[in-house]
Design a protein around this nucleic acid. Structure first.
Lengths: 149, 149
DNA sequence: CCTTTTTTGACAGGGCACTGTCAATCTGTC
DNA sequence: GACAGATTGACAGTGCCCTGTCAAAAAAGG
């Protein structure tokens, strides 16, 4: 056992969970893009539209809301502006930070994606046991809290 | 309820699980990078080293093993070659596809990362209930299978 | 007020994933 | 052996995430 690293049995089980998290995450991203594509969106653009839909907001505020870097949101916003889905409005409170608003095109793309997503989520959720679902969510939440500390 | 999309109660619970998967995935990536950094690695480079560690392999084979595009692995390999952690060997069976092998530097970086990871996993695993852990893994596995179909 | 600190959008550059394309090479078939 | 199809590494381009830097604007404090 020269190069084998010491993992406890528990550690091994845990590693399997981590692997599944990675796998499901990847599959979810793919599924998200598949849901977004017919609306002319990607997952990232969808998420931005969804945040802007809650009301006029600046890039920096949106980035904080989404837990992303300002620059990341800025890039996505700039492509959404090119697509005519987001427009700028002057911000009376801050001359630097213009407000983002949805255009009609942006709003209808968002609604289309949301309708598709709702059907998809309901379909998947109907195939899962509710108690198991809650238990798994709780465990992941605890794990997330543990990882954050 | 003009713009509200129809999500069942079950669908709502399910959405929470999805949010936790995204959150934990992000935290795991950050943790992985933190584990890799002292060894002079990133998560992606670490994964490539780990695959190459199982024996000489070509870029295309490694990409298939890891479930990534050839080009992605090619880029990471090229940076690892620049770092002196991976070397090329002629492949007697295919003149195009040279074999990748670990250098001494690559091997020691990999071992260092693995040692740190083992300690980290064991530490986290010790703080989690074993039955809950198995249940969550199973649910995610089923969900992954469902998503793949 | 005026100065210091913070916030903001913009720019530059890097990491990691993808797709599409191409020529070279390998493989299977006739 | 020759030809057709698959595989391979390399190149080009895209998306999405990050950090660091900068000047302008806003906010905070004296």
């Amino acid at each position: 056992m020269s190069h084998v690293v010491a993992l406890t049995d528990r550690g091994l089980e845990f590693s399997e969970l981590l692997a599944e998290v990675f796998r499901v995450n990847g599959l979810l991203l793919t599924a998200g893009d598949a849901l977004a594509q017919p609306a002319g969106l990607t997952s990232a653009r969808w998420q931005v539209l969804s945040v802007v839909d809650h009301g006029p907001i600046t890039v920096a505020q949106a980035a904080r809301t989404m837990g992303l870097a300002r620059q990341t949101v800025r890039e996505t916003v700039s492509s959404l502006v090119s697509l005519g889905m987001i427009a700028h409005e002057d911000n009376p409170h801050d001359r630097r930070a213009r407000l983002l608003v949805l255009t009609a095109r942006g709003r209808s793309a968002l609604r289309a994606a949301e309708r598709r997503q709702a059907a998809w989520v309901n379909h998947l959720a109907a195939r899962t046991s509710l108690p198991d679902l809650r238990a798994a969510t709780d465990l992941l939440r605890d794990l997330g809290d543990l990882l954050e500390s």
